[in-house]
Write a protein that binds this DNA or RNA. Structure first.
Length: 577
DNA sequence: TATACCGCGTT
DNA sequence: GACGTACGCGGTATAG
């Protein structure tokens, strides 16, 4: 029987890479806790540190905590390694209730144990820093945290087994340390290149601004939808199209302005200016503030946010760095950590469509993937009555592709018509789109059956689940509100697909991390963007890493058909994507 | 200052 | 009346 130990780090900040460890609370049994204070900032080598090193280094322990991704990094930064089996109450609550918007300890304590915990702010009182708080106060607070965490652990553990999410939890708890390592690794950003890109975009935006506003009305704010309404629809008297927003203005979204841009240069320039300003205000600052200690960017990779099982990324969000639009040049700034390193980027090819093939067991789709047939071209053949796959042109393939993806998202006739119009540059009516949808399901009958079955299952059970048993409640599936009901039906279909792909990615990440450690490789996993992984690799490990990453990703799960990975090696993210 | 909404980047 | 999943985040407008 392994010993269960619950820990919680108290720090003088929330940024793992700059904060100092003030102390660690430890609980082993209910209503019993210790607080190990560090007398001074960064007193590495002190008695407390060596005590913690010895204690937490024991691989035979079960180490329980709340949001251990944070604690693991702080401890590591102070030279303390945790080697036991990790359990995390935040992750536990997430796999049981992914729809809950927050999984904070104090909240869970209230929900699961009906206990009102002392808040951090109250504990701090008027003290400016944690180092000024009396040890007695700190001890009470910290030990309450571990005590509650331990009780929540014992409370949720049986529920996870009863709910059938034991396997998913087992996967997720292993991911905690992996994400901690990834965040800690960080991403190197070429600041010199970033600055030169910023300079160029700044110049561009000034030129555009001058052209749009000129010396006419210098006080106009081109960020304001209100001002743009005035500028376009009153001052330039462009006939407005589209509908008004709740605030009483006409929509001036990209969608609307794109339609006007063909006839009005000013609108075209406005769109260009907007795109440029978006990069300048959102992405450039996000990449500019490197951690002074590591000289890298350390984002948060969030494990307990999405309702589908995907990971999310924040502070900054590196999952929405442009890859197609004007800002895609920023990806050149994502570089290896040193001259002797390269980046490896690895993408799952068509993973969501493959998952759909597996979930539906559709013979046409399965057969296509087994024989290496391009599924988008296959769809084009079936829908457009083309006999040979070689005769499908690129436009037809694009149409089919948007259909394949639209289906995954549960797109309706209206949305598909919109998408088709954008792809083909010709107007499509919702009626035409509906015919195409009908034709799609007539050709992929098993997909249609699968969709109906997923909706039925959700209706009966109140939740939908992935191939590996990650569950997501769909409370509104039987709602009287038809909008809510329609949305729920889309979720019932989309979540198993998106979520299964996410499960596979999580498995791949755990397995790759395990191999990196086992083989004592210097390569680091540094980023994940849903179906893509990014690695920082010493040049002498390129060959072994290419093989390892491909193997672990392609074999992360056996789902009945092959998973395929596109892999590239290069000197920046733009090159390897 | 906090919240809501718009708009937009990724998958 | 809306119509495509899942997010994070910058900006403006509005309420308090």
């Amino acid at each position: 029987m392994k010993k269960i130990i619950c820990i919680d780090c108290e720090t003088d900040g929330l940024d793992v890479n700059t904060c100092n460890l003030a102390g660690v609370a430890i609980s082993i049994e209910k209503n019993q806790g210790w607080y190990v204070p560090l007398e001074k900032k960064n007193k590495v080598g002190s008695d407390a540190i060596s005590f913690l090193k010895d204690l937490l280094g024991n691989p035979q322990l079960i180490v329980v905590g709340h949001n251990l991704k944070f604690d693991l990094q702080v401890l590591k930064n102070h030279g303390i390694q945790v080697n036991g089996e990790i359990h995390d109450t935040m992750v536990m609550d997430y796999v049981l209730s992914p729809q809950r918007k927050k999984h904070g300890l104090k909240l869970l304590s209230k929900i699961h144990l009906n206990y009102d915990q002392l808040s951090f702010d109250k504990m701090m009182g008027n003290h400016g820093s944690i180092w000024e708080v009396p040890i007695k106060t700190l001890t009470k607070y910290a030990c309450e945290d571990t005590d509650q965490t331990l009780q929540i652990f014992h409370h949720l553990n049986p529920r996870i087994q009863e709910s059938g999410v034991g396997n998913i939890y087992d996967l997720d708890r292993k991911l905690v340390a992996v994400l901690a390592r990834m965040e800690s690794n960080g991403v190197a950003i070429d600041q010199k290149l970033l600055k030169s890109i910023a300079k160029k975009l700044q110049d561009d935006s000034l030129v555009l601004e001058e052209s749009i506003i000129g010396d006419l009305i210098p006080e106009i704010n081109l960020n304001s939808t209100k001002d743009i309404n005035w500028l376009l629809f009153e001052h330039y008297a462009i006939p407005p199209i589209g509908k008004k927003t709740k605030q009483g203005n006409y929509s001036v979204s990209k969608k609307v302005l794109s339609k006007l841009s063909a006839d009005h240069l000013i609108v075209k320039e406005l769109l260009e200016l907007r795109a440029t300003k978006k990069v300048l205000s959102t992405f450039i600052p996000a990449l500019s503030n490197l951690n002074p200690l590591t000289n890298k960017l350390h984002c948060s990779i969030n494990q307990t946010v999405t309702e589908t099982g995907r990971l999310s990324c924040s502070k900054p969000n590196l999952q929405n760095i442009p890859s197609r639009t004007i800002g895609k040049m920023l990806r050149q700034c994502f570089v290896p950590s040193s001259k002797d390193h390269v980046l490896i980027g690895a993408d799952y090819s068509n993973i969501e469509l493959r998952v759909m093939a597996v979930l539906s067991q559709d013979k046409n789709l399965l057969n296509a993937y087994k024989n290496g047939i391009d599924v988008h071209r296959l769809t084009a053949c079936k829908l457009l009555g083309i006999k040979n796959i070689e005769d499908v042109d690129d436009m037809q393939r694009d149409v089919a592709k948007s259909l394949n993806f639209g289906l995954i998202y549960g797109m309706g006739a209206h949305g598909l018509a919109e998408t088709l119009s954008n792809v083909t540059k010709k107007q499509h009516t919702p009626q035409q789109a509906q015919e195409i949808i009908d034709s799609y399901f007539a050709n992929y009958t098993d997909v249609a059956k699968c969709k109906e079955n997923l909706i039925y299952q959700a209706t009966v059970k109140g939740y939908t689940e992935t191939l590996f048993g990650r569950k997501r409640p769909i409370p509104d599936i039987n709602s009287n509100d038809s909008i809510k009901r329609q949305m729920s039906k889309r979720l019932a279909m989309n979540t198993p697909i998106q979520g299964t792909a996410a499960d596979i990615m999580r498995m791949a990440m755990v397995n790759i991390d395990q191999q990196l450690t086992k083989q004592k490789l210097k390569s680091k996993m540094i980023l994940t963007v849903h179906d893509e992984l990014l690695f920082d690799v010493p040049k002498h490990e390129i060959t072994i890493m290419e093989e390892l990453v491909r193997h672990e990703m392609e074999n992360a799960a056996q789902i009945g058909i092959a998973l395929e990975v596109d892999l590239k090696t290069g000197n920046n993210w733009a090159e390897v994507h």
